[in-house]
Write a protein that binds this DNA or RNA. Structure first.
Length: 278
DNA sequence: ATGCGGACCTGTTAGC
DNA sequence: TGCTAACAGGTCCGCA
């Protein structure tokens, strides 16, 4: 579901619970990503009796930290995951797999119909975690180095869209913003990575950051069912210019092209064949 | 080593 | 109205 701007938005909406004490934990008992069962004991040890001290974001991952604890809780929302604050008496959300009971009758609920998400305990340095350790630079917190990306791309024949979706290349790009950034940089999504010039890579790095920042300003996209931790929705879908716009005319002024859809890396990809040409 | 396709899940929507 | 097929914001694994 969420790409970097949505995850960052969730992170920000969790700030009201910083300082709150976790009093208990309820889980669904269902397995999440990779069929892995939820580590109830580990989560209890990490969180129960402690106060939330911080929420960090690394690409599309969130890390929940607690006062006086060395363990952190890693959360990934997958495609359909949500992390929301609620009151104890609020109606239950369907598909809630982890619910942290907090002081003042509050709850932090993780729900995820498709169960592609992830909630697990991380001990010690998160950079040593197999997924987190391999993450590439985060466009918002670290910035992107076009020269380094260009050098890396020269060694790869994959489509440039596949390249920027690779979380070890750039952390946080997802399927929507990959199309948006490539459109903005005027690069055909199917172009082999090693055929992207340095000039174009500079444009792409800037475009990736720009679409992320703009999405964040609009509170994350709400293409389907995205909601923030407080239950409010984002309105970014109005600002997407190519994603899910197959058959519409190209939004670029003076371009007579029509947005097309094709499958790259098994995912819908939207582009204008007129402005995004070799 | 790299790159691709399929698998993992459920819900929603478009089309008949 | 009801059924079916296609599709959905992500990641990982196995095989070429």
């Amino acid at each position: 579901m969420p790409e970097l701007p949505e995850v960052e938005t969730v992170k920000r909406t969790l700030s009201p619970v910083l300082g709150a004490r976790v009093t208990g934990l309820v889980t669904s008992g269902k397995a999440l990503r990779l069929g892995r069962p939820i580590d109830v004991r580990g989560l209890e040890r990490a969180a129960v009796g402690r106060r939330f001290s911080a929420v960090h974001r690394l690409g599309k991952y969130l890390l929940l930290a607690f006062d006086g604890g060395t363990e952190q809780i890693l959360v990934h929302l997958g495609m359909s995951g949500r992390l929301r604050l609620a009151k104890r008496d609020d109606p239950p959300f369907p598909h809630t797999h982890v619910c942290f009971e907090l002081t003042r009758r509050r709850q932090l609920r993780f729900s995820d119909p498709r169960r592609f998400g992830q909630v697990e305990v991380v001990l010690g340095d998160p950079r040593e975690h197999p997924s987190l350790g391999k993450l590439g630079p985060d466009p918002l917190t670290e910035g992107l180095d076009p020269e380094a990306l260009h050098r890396q791309a020269r060694r790869s024949t994959r489509a440039i869209k596949t390249f920027i979706l690779d979380q070890t290349v750039i952390a946080g790009v997802g399927n929507i913003y990959a199309s948006e950034a490539l459109f903005q940089a005027r690069i055909p999504p199917g172009l082999a990575s090693n055929r992207v010039s340095l000039v174009r890579m500079k444009a792409l790095a800037a475009a990736v950051k720009d679409v992320m920042v703009r999405a964040l300003e609009h509170g994350g996209t709400s293409l389907r069912d995205f909601v923030h931790a407080d239950g409010s929705t984002g309105d970014h879908s109005h600002y997407l210019v190519v994603y899910d716009r197959e058959g519409h005319s190209c939004p670029r002024r003076g371009c007579a092209g029509t947005i097309r859809r094709r499958i790259i890396q098994g995912r819908s990809t939207f582009y204008c064949p007129m402005c995004q040409s070799r």
